[in-house]
Design a protein around this nucleic acid. Structure first.
Lengths: 349, 349
DNA sequence: TGAATCAGTGCAAACGTTTGCGCAAAAATC
DNA sequence: GATTTTTGCGCAAACGTTTGCACTGATTCA
């Protein structure tokens, strides 16, 4: 049997409550006694029992991580694992535990989440996506259960805690980067606009055009269908139309990669005929030919910050619902700039 | 305050112990009473308190998931998230919790693991890699703590539970697939051979050659350095040498992708000059041009099986250390076969 | 000098389960 | 009908913490 608080108390010649208070560094214990207790803990290799501690203090020190209910391809995006790693790393430091919950459908997810919250398995959920009218998010909100969103909240904005990039600004910068290269016919390829990041990036793109006095061409602003076949068809149509754009902002590296393929097929050279900027700065952006200019959203940091906020709110229930914006940065590579020198950073990979 | 076992007991007119036993479907409670209790539970929306239950039964119903301590690039491999999703999904069903632990160095990992096991935060660890002389794995073994490896065990093989593909067979099949296409000069590009999967794939490659009466050329069998720059250099040397191979088995899609790039640079066409088979069947394999023939290792299933084994061993401590082999399959695409028709499955993506 | 304050500790009751054991009542045995 | 066995359930003691409250001895204040 593992060493308990009583063993430590006995060895140190104090009561269990004194040991407990020493662990918490309670001010009403004298430094002298604390030292004595600490020595005993050290000697016995004491580690407080997680379950007992949680039961007594009526919490779980556990954070649920909710993956979006999606097709397998979605998870190929390294964003999710990086966010999870950020969360984990912070949790590990703070002696918290995290549990990822995943499901194929929204309903499946919801049912797991319901039992988890009712059984006190978790203190709160970090939801790794933000989507309009999502039943999971709505449920959490309606139940008043603690949750934080990665991505911008869609409704109840002032009451929900979220961690996000400034996707509008990011897309604006991406677009302005292209404008600076002399482009005027700039298109945007996005995904499902009920996902907040996609909608925001589109907004940023449009904002940049407006600010720079470029009129918005609706044909240039596309919400692509989910199926890859249809995506390809839509992209081809765009690229072979009379008003072919000379530059494209793409909401994701994977999609941008597909775009590069299509360009090659259509004998359009990048960045001469079509310049490209995309998002996520994943490995694929570095491996693509030509290498993709991409916006790094710091997904690991998004994870860290969301865990930090979560724990903060668990331990201080009356905190306001704050928002955190994690900085992004534009990683310029070959797909958007003519005659670019081989840069050291891309070379070291 | 949430509804407890006492509330249910009161409503059903029985004692708390009867409620508890009903939950466990204990045989010594009459079906009649059970039904009464179940109705009460239903009515109150009772969900057993996770912490209390764990404390009383002296376990944690929590599984730690150990990511390898690596550079960021490693995690771009979708293998890890898929494995985690498999584990999570199984845990969610079984009312278990999982917590991923990650660290930049082996020491960091080890220290987290130590406190986790001592504080009873987890019942066991699923280690998502298998490596020679790894201090984490060694620690777990020496402490006699429950763990299961994804990948083949390196030592204490009969005492450790592991879930793996038959990587030897997989690599053998990959190689024989190339042999069937008429290739005789076949090379193998692997990574760090202290990682078991890499060593096994090499072994399978060599086995296939031997069986088919092809002498092994040491130059053809490479353990590539970690840095991408050096990798590229080594590959280029191989491809420009006098004895240039006509086909290559590559231990990972990402590396194979890089190989394709180099081939293009050297004006070698795929699969005519160089045929390629790789591993993991990730998105990148489907997006590459030409599309990569790749071995799918069913990482999600590896996750499921490892969680299943883990829970089985948690609940039955005296079980033997079994091994589970998850099937793989070869997904044939353009990189290994001449004049391949566009297949439906690749088209649907 | 006596009352009031305070710092430092311990007592014991939670927290919500699980489970060994005991005890009735019912069933089986003779 | 008396004895034993079985069935079904409840009692109460764990499990290892946390924490409100009480208590003691020392210090301060008037």
């Amino acid at each position: 049997m593992a060493v308990t608080i009583k063993d430590v108390a006995q060895l140190a010649g104090v009561s269990p409550s004194t040991v407990s208070r020493t662990c918490k560094d309670h001010p009403s214990i004298s430094e002298e006694t604390k030292e004595k207790v600490r020595q005993a803990m050290q000697k016995l290799g004491y580690e407080p029992n997680f379950q007992a501690s949680n039961l007594a203090s009526q919490n779980s020190r556990t954070i649920g991580i909710v993956l979006p209910p999606s097709a397998r391809e979605t998870y190929e995006n390294s964003f999710y694992l990086e966010a999870i790693r950020g969360i984990s790393s912070f949790c590990n430091q703070k002696q918290y535990i995290n549990t990822v919950v995943t499901g194929n459908t929204e309903e499946e997810l919801l049912s797991v989440i319901k039992t988890m919250s009712r059984s006190g398995q978790v203190d709160g959920f970090i939801v790794l996506y933000s989507k309009q009218d999502d039943i999971v998010i709505n449920h959490l909100y309606n139940e008043g259960f603690l949750y934080v969103l990665i991505g911008k909240a869609y409704q109840n904005i002032n009451q929900t805690i979220y961690i996000d990039n400034d996707n509008i600004l990011a897309a604006q910068e991406a677009t302005e980067h292209l404008i600076k290269q002399g482009h005027k016919k700039i298109a945007y390829l996005g995904g499902d606009n009920s996902l907040m990041f996609s909608a925001d990036r589109r907004a940023g793109y449009q904002l940049a055009l407006t600010i720079n006095g470029i009129t918005i061409n609706p044909k240039y602003c596309q919400e692509l269908p989910f199926k890859q076949k249809d995506q390809i068809k839509a992209i081809k149509e765009l690229l072979t139309s009379d008003e072919r754009p000379s530059a494209i902002v793409v909401c994701d590296d994977i999609l941008a990669f597909t775009l590069e393929d299509i360009c090659e097929e259509l004998k359009l050279s990048i960045p001469e005929d079509i310049a490209i900027v995309s998002f996520n700065n994943s490995l694929i952006a570095k491996l693509a030919t030509p290498k993709l200019t991409s916006i790094d959203v710091n997904s690991y940091q998004l994870g860290i910050e969301s865990a930090s906020q979560m724990i903060n709110h668990i331990e201080n229930p009356n905190l306001m619902a704050t928002k955190i914006i994690v900085p992004h940065h534009l990683e310029v590579r070959e797909s958007s700039v003519f005659h670019r020198e081989e840069k050291e950073e891309s070379a070291t990979f």
